[in-house]
Amino acid sequence: MANSIRIRAQISGDTATVKALITHPMETGQRKDKKTGNKIPAHFIQEVKCEHGGKVVVNAQWGAAVSKNPYLSFAFSGAKAGDTVKLSWVDNKGESDTAEAKVK
């Protein structure tokens, strides 16, 4: 999959604020296709993991109630400019993606 993640990490003091946008349909499995009347199968991100310096900082578990093209933001301490933050997601179909960003 082409890169589906846009991630930015900004430092202030020793706290890095990470903002990320992921391109994903986040289908609930409850919507119906208007033409055929069939239900559109569920397709949503289940886990988003963010690592800094080899350690998991945030591990998010999502249900289908997270909006399409999800946005998330969080902050952690102990970072410095130039560090790498790695974000990866896995959805219920086993698809996944990973992106890295430098803390600025």
């Binding site: 945030v58 998010a60 249900g63 909006s67 998330l72 933001s73 969080f74 952690f76 102990g78």
Partner: peptide, 22 residues
Amino acid sequence: QPLAANFELAANAKGTVSTRIK
């Protein structure tokens, strides 16, 4: 299904999370 999201935070993570839900 009421649960939308859960964020497990490491010790150095701040108590702030944002996202968008349905």
